[in-house]
């Protein structure tokens, strides 16, 4: 059971990291920089990823406890709620008929709609993990330190890349422009 939780946390973290990378890919391929709400949703995804990474870091020494699982799930659910609020706000801003939405749709839905689906799925997955602790027995398992290190490093790299992107987009302004079309740091 502990191994299953560890595998689930690894998959959860990497799905979120890949979503952040995919958002970057859309940004670079379509030339559409993220709006302020889009950036808030990215921050929400980063905060969500801290939950499963907390569990992976906690099991570095082989220990997986119900307490660690509960804390990790709590982190994930709280972050998911904030992220879902940002996504839901953007969905509602464009819900009126004939509103084209913001940005090009991907596979039929706008990115903020996909984000809302991702946050809700993340919350549901972590709720299931919490319920599963009723069958969980604390125990020692073999260490998975390289996986924890690789996952945490991947998230850190994605966060640093997003910091660079946001600074390039905002230039020396405190806030992002409402409708960003370029990167103010480069004068565009």
């Amino acid at each position: 059971m502990a191994r299953l939780y560890r595998l689930a946390a690894t998959a959860n973290a990497w799905v979120l990291i890949l979503v952040l990378i995919a958002a970057f890919a859309v940004q670079l391929l379509t030339g559409e920089p993220p709006c302020p709400l889009c950036t808030l949703q990215r921050i929400g995804l980063m905060l969500c990823a801290l939950g499963p990474i907390y569990l992976l870091i906690g099991q570095r020494n082989g220990d997986v406890t119900a307490r660690t699982i509960a804390t990790a799930a709590g982190i994930s659910i709280l972050a998911g709620l904030v992220g879902a609020a940002a996504s839901a706000r953007q969905v509602l801003l464009h819900i009126l008929p004939n509103d084209p939405g913001y940005g090009a749709p991907v596979l039929g839905l706008h990115l903020y709609t996909w984000c809302l689906i991702a946050f809700l799925a993340h919350i549901a997955a972590n709720a299931i993990m919490l319920i599963g602790t009723v069958w969980f027995n604390d125990g020692l398992i073999e260490r998975w330190r390289p996986v924890a290190a690789a996952t945490a490093t991947a998230l850190a790299v994605v966060v640093v890349a997003n910091i660079g992107s946001v600074i390039a987009e905002a230039g020396f302004h405190w806030l992002l422009p409402e409708n960003p079309t370029g990167y103010l740091l480069f004068g565009r």
Binding site: I43, L50, V159, V160, N162, I163, V166, I167, A170
Partner: peptide, 15 residues
Amino acid sequence: MLYAVFMCAVLIVLA
């Protein structure tokens, strides 16, 4: 910049 501050906070939490 404000968003960069939020992201830096995420990095600090991760660390």
